[in-house]
Design a protein around this nucleic acid. Sequence first.
DNA 1: AAATTCTCCTGAAGGC
DNA 2: TGCCTTCAGGAGAATT
Length: 270
Amino acid sequence: MPELPEVETTLRGIAPHLVGQLVTGVVIRQPALRWPVPEDLDVLLENSSLKRISRRAKYLLLHFDRGTLLIHLGMSGSLRILPSGMPHGKHDHVDIIFAHTLLRFHDPRRFGAVLWADANPLQHPLLRSLGPEPLCDQFNAEYLYSKAKQRYGPVKNLIMNSRVVVGVGNIYANEALFAAGIHPARSGNRISRKRYGRLVECIKQTLTSAIEQGGTTLQDFQQVDGKPGYFTQELCVYGRTNKPCPVCGLPIRQKQIGQRSTFYCNKCQR
DNA sequence: AAATTCTCCTGAAGGC
DNA sequence: TGCCTTCAGGAGAATT
């Protein structure tokens, strides 16, 4: 399930193969993704060259001559670099065909999106009101503390709210809160500035480490070359219900917070 | 305005 | 073996 590290891993995997290349064709086999894939994608992209690829939150931005292709991997989406002419399989919904290679969007659960933005893509409705990137300087203790003061509710929901900070999904929210020793259900407005400083550092560290490991593979995530992500081996709490806490040995607990499975150590996290 | 619930979808896993 | 149920989950939309 792609979170920020998986999207960043994907970006780094595909960019060297595609930047500077010319699009020769587009195939849409299944347009019914989260939003309909634009029917005229072929007209928009053909004979256009890919200038660069960037990332905003969990969106990939493929910058072309005439606009930007936005790709979101949703829950189960992935991008693969393949030789042109490679036969497609089930759930291979969109192909962007380049002169020398093929970019294939695969997404069994179809929560992902392939969209077009012609003007400034950062002003696209889906990107416009996003909070800061977690790895930038703007995301710091003072910022998070100020956001927390304004609201009531579990701190886990706060850090998973994309208006507050982007890219922290369920896996890394659980892991960062464990690393920071903060109980996920603790109300965000009852945490000190100092502890927010620690949480910010833990979020940055967790994400950075996961990017270095090529992301986390739970069921279906693969890097562009087909390898799994190796951060899975470093998960302390996520998916480890009733297994011993790596610090104190007590069983990891699981409960629902904000409709999401939450994993924590009741002793180490307060 | 913010918090909660609903929704999209398929595959894996568990129960019988 | 197979059918049925449950769960997982990003994040916008709808609802409270």
